[in-house]
Design a protein around this nucleic acid. Structure first.
Lengths: 216, 216
DNA sequence: CGACTTGCTGACCAGAAGGTCAGTAACTAT
DNA sequence: ATAGTTACTGACCTTCTGGTCAGCAAGTCG
C-alpha cells in the first residue's frame, strides 16, 4: 500500500493535458471550459497545468496545433507524389480524407476556429499558413494537373479549390449543431457533391480538345 | 437645459437592446460579450436590460430570432409563387439571396450558431424548425420542379439541396475567420459553384428524354 | 539512510461579470 | 399643483474563475 499520490512524468504531461483540453473544448467551447475541468480530466492539478502552459490561451493554441499539423502535411505530400490520375485521386484518397474529416476530432476545430478565431489573430495567421494555404495549394495543383492532362475542362475550380471541401465544412458544422436530433449522411453528402463537380468538369474519354468554358 | 436624463420608451427598448446585442455578439461572440457592454451600446442601464430579458441567454435567443425570421419566410414564399423556370430562379433571385447572405448581419448567426448552438438545445430546435427545415424544403421543391419540367436530370441534389448553400456557409465562415487578411471573392465563389452544379444537372435544350444517372 | 532537486499539489487571491433592488425621476391623471 | 404610477438607474452582492505560490513528496545520488 502507500501508493504514491502521484507520479512524476514530465515527458507525458503536455500531451495528456492537450488531449484533455481538446475533449473539453470540443464539448463546451473555449470560453465555457474551465481550466480546472481540463486539469481534472487530465488527472492533474491546476497548478501543474500552469507549469506547462502559461495561460489558458496558450493551451488553446497548443491544442489546435497538436491536432492539425499531421493531417495536412500528409495530404499535401500524397497529392504531389501520387501516380493516380486527377479523377482517380479525387475519388480515392481525397474522398477518403474528406469523408473522415467530419467524424474525426479535427471536426471540432471548425467550431473552435469559427468561434474563437477572431479573438486570436496570431493563431488564425498560423492556421492559415500551415493548414489552409497548403491545403488549397495542393488541391489547386491537382485540379490543374487534371486540366493539363486533358481530364478536366478549365473551370472556376482552378481558382476556387475551396469548393471541393465546402461540403466537408458543412457536414462538420451540421453534425456539431444538429446531431443527434437531425442526422445527415455525411458520407453520401460529400460523395454526391464530388460526383456533381466531376460531372461538370470532366471531359469524356476520347474528346480531347478544349470545350468552351461555362457560360456566364 | 435640464434635458431629462432619459426618456421612457417602453415600446422601442426591446428592439434597441436586441440590435445592440447583435452587434456585440457579432464582434466578440456570446461568452465574451458583457451584458454591461450591450446595455451601454443600447444607451440603457443594465437594470433596464434585465427588465426586458430575464437572463443573458434569453437575450441571446431573442437576438437570433429577431434576425432570422423575416428572411426565410420571404425566400420560401418567393420560390412557391415564382413564374420563373427552376434555372432562371436559381440564377436570379436565389443567387441574389445567396450572395448577399455572407455580407448581411445574418452572417454572424453562423458563427453564433456553430459556437453556441450545442449549449442551447431549445434554440437549436427552434432554428431547425423555423429556418433550416423551411429553407431546405423550399430548395428541394425547386429542384424537383426542375426535374419534372425536364430542365434537370435526376441527381443527388434532390436529396441534398444543402449542397446549393454550402458555398454560402463557407463564404461566411471564411470571412469571419480570415478577413480582412485573406479575402475571398464571395460573389464569384458562390456563382462559380452554382455554375458547376447547373452544368452537372442541366439537360441541354431539345434533349428531353431522361439520361442515365451519374455513374458510381 | 539522509540530503538535495524538482515535478507536483491545492488553498488562496484579485478581479470580473451576471444578476438584484431600493431608490429616482419621467410621465399621467385629476 | 400634486399625488400616483412605473420606466429607468446604478451601486451593490454573490459567485465564479484564471492565475499564483508556499510547501509537499517522488525520485535520485552519495
Amino acid at each position: 500500500m502507500a501508493r504514491p499520490r502521484f507520479r512524476r512524468r514530465k515527458e507525458d504531461r503536455p500531451e495528456e493535458i492537450t488531449r484533455a483540453a481538446l475533449a473539453a473544448f470540443a464539448e463546451k467551447g473555449y470560453a465555457a471550459t474551465r481550466v480546472t475541468d481540463v486539469a481534472k480530466r487530465a488527472g492533474v492539478s491546476k497548478g501543474l497545468l500552469y507549469l506547462y502552459f502559461r495561460t489558458k490561451e496558450e493551451l488553446f493554441k497548443a491544442v489546435i496545433k497538436s491536432v492539425v499539423s499531421p493531417r495536412i502535411d500528409a495530404l499535401q505530400k500524397a497529392i504531389e507524389e501520387t501516380e493516380l490520375s486527377a479523377e482517380e485521386y479525387l475519388r480515392g484518397p481525397f474522398l477518403d480524407f474528406a469523408r473522415q474529416l467530419p467524424r474525426s476530432p479535427a471536426r471540432v476545430l471548425i467550431r473552435l476556429m469559427i468561434a474563437e478565431g477572431p479573438r486570436h489573430p496570431d493563431l488564425t495567421a498560423w492556421y492559415w499558413e500551415n493548414v489552409v494555404a497548403h491545403g488549397l495549394d495542393a488541391l489547386r495543383k491537382l485540379i490543374r494537373r487534371g486540366v493539363e492532362g486533358g481530364e478536366f475542362r478549365p473551370s472556376a475550380l482552378e481558382e476556387f479549390p475551396h469548393l471541393l471541401i465546402a461540403p466537408v465544412l458543412v457536414s462538420a458544422a451540421w453534425s456539431i449543431v444538429f446531431e443527434p436530433h437531425h442526422k445527415l449522411d455525411t458520407d453520401r453528402f460529400i460523395e454526391a457533391h464530388l460526383d456533381l463537380l466531376l460531372q461538370a468538369i470532366r471531359i469524356p474519354h476520347g474528346e480531347n480538345r478544349q470545350t468552351g468554358e461555362p457560360g456566364t
